[in-house]
Amino acid sequence: MKRTLIGSALCALLLVGCGQGSSDNKEANGGKKMKIGVTMLSMQNEFIVKVSDEIEKKAQEMGVELIVVDAERSALKQVEQVESFIAQKVDAIIMNPCEVEASSPAVTKALAAKIPIVNVNSETSAAPTAFVGSDDVESARIAMNYIAEKLGGKGNILMMHGYMGQAAQIKREQGAREIFQKNPNLKLLAHQTAEWDRAKAMSLMENWIQSYGANVNAVFAQNDEMGMGAVNALTAAGRKDKVIVVSIDAIPDALQAVKKGTLNATVFQNAQQQGANALETAVKIVKGEKFEKQTLIPFQLVTKENVETFLK
């Protein structure tokens, strides 16, 4: 699904907030409807779309007006979008950062304009007013510990990176390397970015199959889109039953693949809680209420044994 700057039809849907919180939020905001700008990393990414959907759902419940835009993986565009929010005098900003460093000026500019900014799902080096997300180091530890256990602490592993420079990519690599250090008989054969993308991951996996063949024992993909791309390539090459594949996010496709046994495991990241809590936190800040500076939502390992719980 692709979303760009809100068109008139979608805008009408988003700007008509409803729910019991509407009058309270108007009253707390001087009689005006609270307006929050939202800039998301990429609406080509299924998990990010889910987070955005939950922000929109909670905004409708609370009677908050949203302006939602797609940064299309460009930190430069994201900074410009935040500048636009500032010019529109929004009450708060929610940002799903494209990059740790390159998206940081957006935080600095928002705070300089005295507009609170909440980072959701991903981080920046500049400290925002609040952060809502999960510990990405933990997610990689969970995934890699599963691989280490299944391989008995010995084997050759390939790692697919997400978009280089984004917090999730940096921290998931950090978590993975911690497990490699604890398991000296696990060898990292190769690692390369597939930019969170299924098609790019499939192409990369095809290249790796040609290069490493039967030497590959497992693949750690830093998100499910790439994990599914790896599964597709391995299946086409008749190698899937010989290679363990684990990824992160627990998107619907990945859950179905775990159920079928084609994807060995995924790590559940709670898009519903991230999106809803980000919006709730922004509203609390605008209303001058007490709020959590950092909200971390735990990850959970999903295997064939417990996947039905997550499919409900």
Rank of each mutant, 00 (worst) to 15 (best):
V16H: 15
C18A: 15
Q20F: 15
G21S: 10
S22G: 14
N25Q: 10
K33I: 15
I36V: 14
L41R: 13
S42V: 13
F47D: 03
V49C: 13
V68Q: 06
D70V: 08
R73P: 02
E80P: 06
Q81R: 08
V82C: 03
I86E: 06
D91F: 04
I94G: 01
I94K: 01
I94R: 02
P97R: 00
E99D: 12
E99G: 05
A102L: 10
S104V: 02
A113Q: 03
K114I: 04
E138P: 03
I142C: 08
A143N: 06
M144L: 10
G152P: 07
I157G: 01
M160H: 08
Y163G: 09
Q169S: 15
K171E: 14
R172F: 09
E178W: 05
I179A: 02
L186K: 01
N207H: 10
V219R: 00
A221N: 05
N223V: 07
M228G: 04
G229A: 07
A230L: 08
A237H: 05
G238T: 05
K240I: 03
I244Q: 00
V245M: 02
I248D: 07
I251H: 09
Q256N: 15
N270A: 14
I285W: 06
F291N: 02
E292R: 08
K293F: 07
K304H: 13
E305P: 06
T309K: 15
L311D: 05
L311K: 12
